[in-house]
Amino acid sequence: MNPETLSALGEPNRFRIVELLRTGPRSVNDIRGRLGLRQSQVSQHLTVLKAVGLVEAEPHAQQRLYKLRAQPVKQLHKWIDRYRCIWEERFEQMDELVEEMTRKEKSDAAGRK
């Protein structure tokens, strides 16, 4: 996973565009209307997303339809999965610690009665 991809997705409007494109190809005007952005903003964001390889454009009549590219999205998913295991393990450890602290508090409270 290259850092440019993560950087591109770190910008909220680009992330929103990627989320919107998950449902299928869209034109700049469609994206503009759905996200409430100016046409120039959408074009700039799409240029960045295209540069990092997340989207591609296909000519369709008088406009270009932008769609997600499967391979970079799969790479991102694989990269996230590598860390998901670590996060889940740490959350389990944290759950165990919270349970232990709760038991200790209950035990301490019962001993004071």
Rank of each mutant, 00 (worst) to 15 (best):
V28Q: 04
L35G: 02
R32E: 07
Q62C: 11
P59C: 08
T23M: 04
Q44P: 02
L37Q: 07
L68M: 07
T47I: 08
V52G: 06
S27D: 04
L76A: 05
L68Y: 05
V73D: 01
L35H: 02
H45P: 02
A57Q: 09
S27P: 01
V42L: 00
P25L: 02
V48R: 12
G24S: 05
Q62T: 15
Q71K: 12
R32I: 00
S40K: 09
A57V: 06
Q44R: 15
H45F: 09
Q75F: 06
Q39C: 05
P25R: 05
G36P: 11
G36C: 10
A57E: 13
T47S: 15
R38N: 11
L35I: 08
H60V: 13
T47G: 09
K50A: 15
L76R: 04
L54G: 00
V55T: 15
V52A: 08
R32A: 00
S40T: 13
P72T: 03
P59V: 11
S43Q: 12
T23E: 12
L46P: 05
A57F: 04
G53V: 08
G36D: 09
H60E: 14
K74N: 12
K67T: 08
T23V: 11
V42G: 00
Q39T: 09
G33S: 07
T47C: 08
V42K: 00
A61K: 14
L54V: 05
A61P: 01
R38G: 10
E56N: 11
L37V: 05
E58G: 09
S43R: 12
G24Q: 02
V48K: 11
S40H: 12
Q75P: 01
Y66H: 14
Q39M: 06
Q63S: 11
V48L: 10
A70K: 15
T23L: 08
V28S: 03
R64G: 03
Q71S: 12
T47W: 03
